[in-house]
Simulated assay, not measured.
Amino acid sequence: MTEQEKKELQERVKSVIERVNNAAVQAGRDPSEITLVAATKMNDAERVQAAIEAGIRVCGENRVQELQEKYEQNAYDGADLQFIGTLQTNKVKYLIGKVSLIQSVGSVHLGEAIAKEAEKRGVCQDILLEVNIGREAAKSGLPPEELHDAIVKLSAKRSLHIRGLMAIPPVAD
């Protein structure tokens, strides 16, 4: 990464942070209540570190293998790391202990797999339940009518902490 690229990245990060802060103030919110999560997919470890140096405090990765590679390169040092992608149960073991939050828990089965692995490691994993609010076939997540039962089942797991919900609404005009 060239010095010019680093400078451009710093300017872009600064601009985004300023826009988020201004939007928060306009909405009557305290900017410190807003968490900017930078999706770091398809960026190498050097670029991720440059973004952190520029002011990014939370990185979101959506591919387990990419997260593992960058994690081993210390790419996320100095920032919080969250998983924001679709997660298969057989890959849960690669995230527990590395990420502070798994944002895409779209089934009770996946939540139970996370709880089991977290319990093995003696940690409590923060999660967001993903809800398919638009009932779109191309999107994952719990159907809204299953949300209550999922919360009841998963909140009983000592090794899970449901922090909230995550949803991506359908595209609208």
Score class of each variant (00 low, 15 high):
62 N>W: 04
64 V>N: 12
85 G>A: 09
147 L>K: 05
31 P>Y: 11
2 T>R: 13
2 T>L: 07
35 T>S: 10
165 L>E: 09
13 V>G: 02
127 I>K: 08
44 D>P: 02
47 R>D: 04
170 P>T: 07
121 R>K: 15
4 Q>R: 02
106 G>Q: 04
165 L>H: 08
52 I>V: 15
123 V>H: 05
111 G>C: 09
142 L>A: 09
134 G>W: 13
127 I>F: 13
108 V>D: 02
140 S>T: 15
23 A>Q: 10
168 I>R: 06
104 S>Y: 00
63 R>E: 11
92 V>L: 05
164 G>S: 12
155 S>T: 14
163 R>M: 10
97 G>R: 03
82 Q>G: 01
137 A>R: 15
71 Y>S: 11
17 I>P: 00
172 A>M: 13
76 Y>C: 01
110 L>A: 03
12 R>M: 01
153 K>Q: 09
88 Q>V: 13
136 E>D: 15
21 N>I: 00
159 S>Q: 03
82 Q>A: 03
70 K>H: 11
63 R>G: 11
129 L>S: 04
129 L>Q: 05
11 E>M: 05
29 R>G: 04
108 V>E: 04
95 L>R: 00
34 I>L: 09
97 G>F: 05
117 E>I: 03
44 D>T: 01
51 A>F: 07
68 Q>I: 14
171 V>L: 11
119 E>A: 15
43 N>Q: 13
171 V>K: 10
73 Q>T: 03
113 A>G: 08
101 L>A: 03
54 A>S: 15
136 E>H: 07
172 A>S: 12
173 D>C: 06
39 A>F: 02
88 Q>C: 09
124 C>E: 15
60 G>H: 09
15 S>F: 00
76 Y>Q: 03
16 V>E: 00
101 L>R: 02
141 G>T: 13
78 G>A: 05
20 V>G: 08
162 I>A: 04
34 I>M: 09
36 L>S: 06
124 C>D: 06
1 M>G: 08
111 G>P: 10
163 R>H: 04
112 E>R: 15
153 K>Y: 01
159 S>I: 07
167 A>H: 06
171 V>T: 15
19 R>I: 00
10 Q>T: 03
164 G>L: 04
91 K>P: 11
24 A>D: 06
57 R>Q: 15
3 E>R: 11
46 E>A: 14
82 Q>R: 15
88 Q>I: 09
97 G>I: 05
73 Q>V: 05
125 Q>F: 02
81 L>W: 01
9 L>F: 05
172 A>I: 13
18 E>C: 00
151 I>V: 10
55 G>Q: 12
137 A>G: 07
114 I>H: 08
120 K>P: 00
104 S>R: 04
41 K>M: 03
79 A>D: 04
128 L>V: 02
157 K>P: 02
121 R>W: 06
44 D>N: 13
101 L>E: 07
172 A>V: 14
109 H>S: 12
33 E>D: 14
128 L>M: 08
108 V>M: 01
35 T>D: 14
8 E>C: 06
137 A>H: 09
137 A>I: 15
49 Q>T: 08
40 T>F: 07
8 E>H: 10
